[in-house]
């Protein structure tokens, strides 16, 4: 009678005591820092927009592979002067390499890149290139080919005559320039498609809200839109759905986000030409690692581009991202 109860009680007691004993270690074990005992060999710094989470993920994965550490510094606004200042700060910190984007042809930015170069610190530009700067490598998609792919996607999917309105962020932006150039070159081979207007919106939502309806009103013959930039691609879809759902518009967007995918799913967009920012992040760390190890690297490294449509949407699953520590500037 008692012996049975005592047997179970003894087992419980042993378990609890063992748990208690372990918990005295677990309590503090749980509090151990996330400090990695694997010391990293190189220190890199990424200076980029905060939205570049896929890039950050690629960098984190590459850091784990190449035993490097990349500090992620980001900002909401793409101010080239601040960007330059951060590059200079990274140079002062004595980092082994800098990853940034040539979002602007600002003189300060070029000088900062030059400063890094002077200190022997390699600079890799991703997404947007500044060919005239002292950067060592450009990693990104071939923007000209993105334009070509967008045009092909638009032409192949429709049988009617197309009057295209192009909406971009910055006419001076070399990437967007290249995309438009590729787009124009491709459609020049067809008589059934012509560009009516190119609209510049500076990645500003208010400006987009104001200018896009105006464009569609002024150029009523427009029955196709080429959204050559990511932010514009996210915003324009909602405007079309809210106000111009009756129009038979053929829209080709750029980039791969949840919103853009939703626009493709509900038929607002025909397709979206996307690149792989994850690859850009990963390859940038890999390239810097190779450069600091005095291995030869290509000056231009192009990442894959692809066209997302309703049919192949599921073939491009969205990545899940780890928690990333971004420093603001």
């Amino acid at each position: 009678m008692f012996s049975d109860k005592m047997k179970y009680l003894k087992l419980i007691l042993c378990f609890l005591t063992a748990l208690l004993f372990l918990s005295s270690f677990i309590v503090f074990g749980d509090m151990s820092s996330d400090f990695s005992s694997d010391t990293y060999e190189k220190r890199f710094t990424l200076i980029a927009p905060l939205q570049w989470v896929p890039v950050g993920q690629g960098i984190l994965d590459a850091d784990a592979v190449f035993h490097t550490n990349t500090k992620l510094i980001g900002s909401d606004t793409l101010d080239p002067d601040q960007q330059a200042e951060e590059i200079n700060a990274a140079v002062l910190s004595g980092v082994d390499g800098i990853i940034t984007s040539g979002t602007s042809t600002s003189e300060n930015l070029c000088e900062a890149i030059q400063n890094a170069s002077d200190h022997g610190i390699p600079v890799v530009l991703i997404d947007s290139d500044l060919p005239n700067s002292s950067r060592n490598v450009y990693i990104g998609s071939n923007n000209y080919q993105m334009g070509v792919l967008s045009a092909q996607s638009m032409i192949q999917e429709t049988k009617k005559d197309l009057f295209v309105g192009i909406i971009i962020s910055d006419l001076e932006n070399p990437n967007q320039k290249q995309r438009i150039l590729g787009f124009l070159d491709e459609i020049s081979q067809y008589d059934t498609i012509q560009v009516v207007e190119i609209l510049e919106c500076h990645s500003n939502q208010l400006e987009i809200l104001e200018k896009v309806p105006k464009l569609l009103t002024e150029f009523s013959q427009i029955n196709a839109l080429y959204l050559a930039e990511a932010f514009t691609s996210v915003v324009v879809g909602d405007i079309i759905k809210d106000r111009y759902s009756s129009l038979d518009l053929t829209i080709v967007a750029t980039d791969d986000t949840d919103t853009i995918r939703q626009h493709i799913l509900d038929g607002t967009y025909l397709s979206s030409t996307a690149q792989s920012p994850y690859d850009e992040g990963y390859l940038s760390v890999q390239t810097l690692y190779q450069m600091t190890g005095n291995q030869p690297v290509d000056e231009y490294i192009y990442t894959d581009i692809f066209s997302i449509t309703q049919e192949n949407l599921n073939h491009f699953p969205q990545l899940s991202y780890e928690e990333q520590l971004w420093h603001f500037y």
Partner: peptide, 24 residues
Amino acid sequence: RNLIFFFAILCLDLFCCILYIFFC
């Protein structure tokens, strides 16, 4: 959080210990 967990187990353990002594 861990402290609460630790003390909860400690109290449970002591309770069981008292119960065990009683049964003994």
